[in-house]
């Protein structure tokens, strides 16, 4: 029983990370039709920014943690918005070229991170409470999992409220449904494009800081390894659907944890198998329109 609870909560924590990456990917794809390969780099950069700040502020206090989370989100948002503004916008409506530019950016940025911070993982420490465990139903659960889950839930709520209640949220939702119509009504969708990139980048940067605490280190490869699972999550959830991404993140991560424990470390293969089954049964994903 305690093992199951531990696996479940760890899976939820990992799912929270997947969601922070996949939510941005899904929104960007839904609105603009771009598969953003540079998303992993936003995450890595956010993680490094958070680490650099924490190193300078010193101390493993909660203030440092929240400051580094804010820094990671801010850096992610700024870099993502700049990427959209400087590179993606020039290739308006040429989806393949847009994807190619993000591929180039991903390759170049990871190499640059290698050059600046080195290829070896850098170990990070959080507040002392992070290293402790809490006992739930007999399971000793590391505390950082709870922070991850709480942050991801807050981000999900904030995104849903933003999309439902604000004018820009309305434009983004309308743009996902039918971009041509929104443009025809005289609304400048391009601002929404930059905004969506900034939101996705902020979530990824935040995810980067949290991932560095979850895994215990930062490395230039951090983003790339999470990105592949985030891709799988977005396809399973249905491209362009935020709720789909949330559900699929949890399903994929929990399944991965259980398979790793009970089926001898086959978590990654089981996830790919799940992807194959979903594609056979529902090619448009769990909650998706036909992509």
């Amino acid at each position: 029983m305690s093992t199951i609870v531990l696996l479940l909560i760890t899976g939820l924590g990992l799912g929270a990370l997947y969601f922070l990456v996949a939510s941005g990917l899904s929104l960007i794809y839904g609105l603009m039709g771009i598969l953003n390969f540079a998303h992993g780099s936003f995450l890595t950069l956010g993680a490094f920014a958070g680490w650099e700040l924490a190193r300078r502020m010193g101390g493993d206090s909660w203030v440092t943690l929240f400051a580094s989370m804010a820094a990671g989100a801010a850096v992610g948002a700024i870099v993502a918005a700049a990427t959209e503004f400087l590179l993606i916008r020039r290739l308006y409506n040429r989806h393949i070229e847009q994807v190619l530019v993000t591929v180039g950016l991903a390759l170049a940025s990871v190499a640059l991170f290698d050059g600046i911070w080195g290829t070896d993982p850098i170990y990070v420490t959080g507040p002392a409470w992070f290293a402790e465990t809490t006992e739930i139903l007999g399971a000793r659960v590391p505390n950082d999992r709870f922070v991850l889950i709480a942050v991801a839930v807050l981000v999900l709520i904030a995104m849903v409220l933003f999309l439902r209640l604000t004018r820009y949220g309305l434009i983004i939702r309308a743009g996902v449904e039918n971009r041509a119509m929104v443009t025809a009504l005289g609304i400048d969708v391009r601002k929404a494009f930059t905004l969506v990139f900034a939101i996705g980048g902020a979530a990824a940067g935040l995810g980067g800081v949290l991932a560095s605490h979850y895994f215990g280190y930062v490395s230039p490869q951090l983003g790339g390894s999470l990105l592949i699972f985030a891709f799988i999550v977005t396809v399973i959830g249905g491209l362009g659907s935020l709720t789909g991404a949330a559900v699929a993140s949890v399903v994929v991560a929990v399944l991965q944890q259980f398979a790793n424990y009970y089926l001898g470390g086959t978590g990654d293969l089981v996830v790919v198998l799940l992807l194959a089954v979903v594609l056979l049964v529902r090619p448009s994903g769990l909650v998706g329109r036909l992509a």
Binding site: L87, L91, L100, V101, G104, L105, L107, A108, L112, D114
Partner: peptide, 19 residues
């Protein structure tokens, strides 16, 4: 730092070609 990373130069070159 940028020049000592071949992949950085190739990636940048690639972006410029696409653009």
């Amino acid at each position: 730092i940028p020049l000592s990373e071949p992949l950085f130069i190739l990636g940048t070159l690639f972006i410029l070609v696409v653009l």
